[in-house]
């Protein structure tokens, strides 16, 4: 994993910065001390360019996913990648040193450092001891920090209990984050989450507001009378994308159970059943703007 990450970093950042990082990795491997590690972790900002996106090839991305399913560096900048490399090295220390250092780093981390730490979780050891920190990180209202855990990160799906998972998905809906980028969203569907989505929809509708259409993806497999009625509401009162979301849920039902809804959803249902319309495509079409947040990365 480390060599793969360093290869990607080599292609994304100036050579002298990568040389510095390799020297520091060597030093930490030979003689680990916490304070120099803290300095290096922060000091990434003094050696690497501030606004440089990571450039990974499709082959490299595929290799990352093979070593750690769901793990990706897509959308990262070089600060984050360099810090994740340092954390991967920290993961080779003994357990107490590792956990103590991670906790101390999180305790004093700036925005981009926090995002780097959570992004590294999938490739770090002692996962069970990191779950609480990830759950706590999701309490942040800072979009970048939330995103670093919730989006493009396989850690929550692999390690969260259902209540924490459900809170994460619901908060993503509240702060308008793209659900299709949550790793394991379909695999972690559950009845409680489906019910919570329905409650949330009723709340929103009572207030004359709407719910992001991706929300209904969580209800597949849990369509009861209430959800069926919600889908009817979406068809009658929603916009085009709401109808698409309803069609994607309806397409998952046995045709004989959904005759009335099927009758209302002609073209959308055909698209859903042909595979032309997918949840990921629907999610991408929403193009939710992450807006400005703690560490905007220039394109």
């Amino acid at each position: 994993m480390r060599e793969l990450l360093l290869d990607i970093l080599d292609a994304s950042a100036p050579g002298d910065a990568c040389d510095w990082l390799r020297r520091r990795l060597g030093e930490h491997a030979a003689h680990f001390r916490r304070r120099p590690f803290y300095y290096d972790f922060s000091g990434v900002s003094r050696h690497f360019p501030k606004h440089a996106p990571v450039a990974a090839t499709l082959e490299q991305l595929a290799a990352l996913g093979e070593e750690c399913p769901g793990f990706t560096v897509e959308g990262w900048d070089v600060f984050r990648l360099a810090r994740v490399v340092l954390l991967e090295a920290l993961g080779r220390q003994e357990k107490d040193t590792f956990l103590g250092t991670v906790a101390a780093l999180l305790n004093t981390a700036d925005l981009r450092e926090q995002a780097a730490i959570y992004s590294a979780f999938p490739i770090l050891p002692y996962s069970d001891d990191l779950v609480e920190a990830a759950v706590d990180g999701l309490r942040s209202n800072i979009v970048d920090v939330f995103d670093s855990i919730a989006l493009g990160n396989p850690f929550p799906a692999a390690h969260f209990a259902a209540p924490a998972w459900n809170q994460m998905v619901l908060k993503a809906l509240f702060i308008n984050r793209p659900l299709h980028r949550i790793v394991g969203l379909d695999r972690r569907r559950n009845a409680a989450l489906s019910e919570a989505v329905s409650y949330l929809a009723h709340e929103r509708w009572s207030a004359g507001r709407t719910l992001p259409p991706e929300a209904w993806r969580n209800c597949i497999g849990f369509v009861d009378e209430t959800i069926a009625a919600d889908l009817g509401h979406l068809v009658d009162h929603g916009g085009p994308v709401d109808r698409q979301a309803a069609a994607l849920v309806v397409a998952s039902l046995p045709a004989e159970d959904a005759a009335p809804l099927r009758a209302l959803l002609g073209p959308e249902l055909a698209a859903a059943e042909s595979g032309e319309l997918t949840w990921d495509g629907l999610g991408r079409s929403l193009a939710l703007d992450p807006g400005l947040n703690g560490s905007p990365v220039k394109p």
Partner: peptide, 20 residues
Amino acid sequence: FKDYFNTLVGFERFRASQFG
């Protein structure tokens, strides 16, 4: 003090960014 410094490199930075 630690939490104050954390705010200065954390939430306050985020708050400001929301106003450009």
